[in-house]
Design a protein around this nucleic acid. Structure first.
Lengths: 129, 129
DNA sequence: CTGAATCCCTGAGGATACTG
DNA sequence: CAGTATCCTCAGGGATTCAG
């Protein structure tokens, strides 16, 4: 049962309303992808400009090769990121946001900025317990 | 090393700049909390109004008791949600967003709305591979 | 109704080594 | 440089049961 959405979108493949609260709606899976720690950081990093594999690795402190590659592949599959490989020696691979990926910039950046802006409120809330 | 943030906030407990890209910055952990599938759905559900435990469970299709309780506890600890128990029989427990939690509404809702608005673009991107 | 407690299992994710 | 391949660990998270 759907609540009172401000705007109702429809999933073309099923004809049903797009609803993240519905377990089977494909939006739920996408939300899981986007609401992943690494996804947020990668998309936000690429928001500024195209980056190479190693640049991403250095920028996102603490990410492992495995998770970086894996998350990039998923972002590619979802159509958020384009991978461009130049057949040079040594190889050079660039990652860029697609137009779809760019449209994600704003909500993702808002999330990052909110966290950075409210970290002190949160730490205070934690201590008063 | 920090890039070019639009605004720099500081973590009072350390005096260092708030930076989700830094592995040890406390903002990273908070981002992990917020960027969880259940967190997004719970905060978004509570954005509209106070809800009882069972109401939340019904609203968020597919969530288990364990994850609902666990995520609510974390939201409480982070200061996003208030838990109010009425000593009635049967018990009644209400969950409400705190002012801090309310400030999260906008970025969270933006994320949900983005997903619902772009699900068709994403499904198309997936098929063309 | 609102949980807490327990069991269990899959998969997220790190570490390391190897390759074109 | 940009990965792939393995191994391994641990925690996320489901299912079930019990309780105030």
């Amino acid at each position: 049962m759907r609540y009172t959405p401000s705007v109702t979108h429809y999933v073309e493949s099923s004809g049903l309303p797009a609803d993240v609260y519905s377990a089977k709606c494909p939006t739920r899976e996408v939300l899981d992808h986007i609401a992943g720690k690494w996804t947020v950081l990668i998309v936000d990093a690429l928001a500024e400009r195209t980056l190479r594999y190693t640049e991403l690795r250095r920028r996102i402190e603490g990410i492992s090769q495995k998770m970086l590659t894996q998350t990039l592949r998923q972002l590619e599959a979802d159509g958020f990121v384009t991978r461009t490989a130049y057949p040079t020696v040594p190889p050079q691979v660039e990652y860029t946001l697609t137009p779809l990926g760019h449209s994600l910039r704003s909500p993702i950046a808002a999330l990052r900025e909110w966290v950075e802006a409210h970290i002190n409120d949160i730490e205070r809330a934690r201590q008063s317990r």
